[in-house]
């Protein structure tokens, strides 16, 4: 579904991604882990072109995306993204947040979008919060709205950029539950997270990044019980 080959990214002189190859299969849940600064968030943001690659190729369903010739908004319609800091639209109610893109990007009739939006809010357990403004919600609730908002575009893949890192510990669970539900429904997901329990339980594959490269990857069972790369061992001994 997603194919990344030889991806390089620089921030000024800083070489953040040093030739990353990554393939994501349909319905696969890939969890990317690594120390901060390892490039995992940058890699994720390159996948929907919030960061522009400097070298290499990114393709969706076999089609290489050239940011110069491909309208990126069309690509992004199929790639949902959930941010660490939620980025809900504060001037809109929860339901308005969810229907904004379907109505104004996809041109879904408003009544239909509202119907679908309410179903999505129910799915993330916030059916009663549709008419509330985001500022009234807890962090966990905000993040669940953000997930519903991304799902409203019916994307074929969902990207999660440290979705629980800004949450109070007691609110992490409710967001992870929603994500587990998505994975169970067969959503293709790429998740950057520090939640090792989630990685172990939900991931089909764990990708460990170190210093801008994929140092090791594999199924979570093998990776967590018997990491090969010394940096991976070191990392796991610190976080587990």
């Amino acid at each position: 579904m997603i194919n990344v080959s030889n991806l390089h990214k620089y921030f000024g002189k800083l070489h953040v991604l040093k030739g990353v190859d990554l393939e994501v299969q349909p319905q696969e849940v890939v969890v990317m882990i690594g120390a901060s600064g390892s490039g995992k968030s940058t890699l994720l943001r390159c996948l929907n072109f919030l960061e522009m690659k400097d070298e290499g190729e990114i393709s969706f369903n076999g089609q290489a995306i050239d940011p110069k010739t491909t309208p990126l908004n069309k690509v992004r319609e199929n790639v949902g993204m959930v941010f660490q800091h939620f980025n809900l639209f504060p001037h809109m109610t929860v339901l308005e947040n969810v229907i904004e893109a379907p109505v104004h990007v996809k041109r879904t009739p408003r009544a239909e979008a509202i119907e679908q939006g309410r179903q999505l809010l129910e799915k993330v357990g916030l059916a009663d919060k549709g008419d509330v403004y985001p500022e009234k919600l807890s962090g966990g609730q905000k993040q669940r709205v953000a997930i519903a908002r991304a799902l409203a575009m019916e994307p074929s893949v969902m990207l999660f950029d440290e979705p629980t890192s800004a949450l109070d510990p007691e609110l992490v669970g409710e967001v992870l539950e929603v994500m587990k539900g998505l994975a169970a429904d067969g959503m293709t997901m790429v998740v950057v997270t520090h939640e090792m329990g989630f990685a172990r339980e939900v991931a089909d594959r764990v990708v460990f990044l170190d210093n801008g490269m994929i140092a090791e990857q594999g199924d979570p069972e093998t990776f967590f019980s018997n990491p090969q790369h010394p940096k991976a061992r070191q990392f796991l001994s610190r976080v587990l």
């Binding site: 790639v79 639209f89 104004h104």
Partner: peptide
């Protein structure tokens, strides 16, 4: 993050600016 969220939903920059 507001512009990023809007763009990630497939909004063009002009639409994101306006809405």
């Amino acid at each position: 993050g507001q512009m990023e969220a809007a763009e990630s939903l497939g909004m063009k920059r002009g639409l994101a600016m306006r809405r």
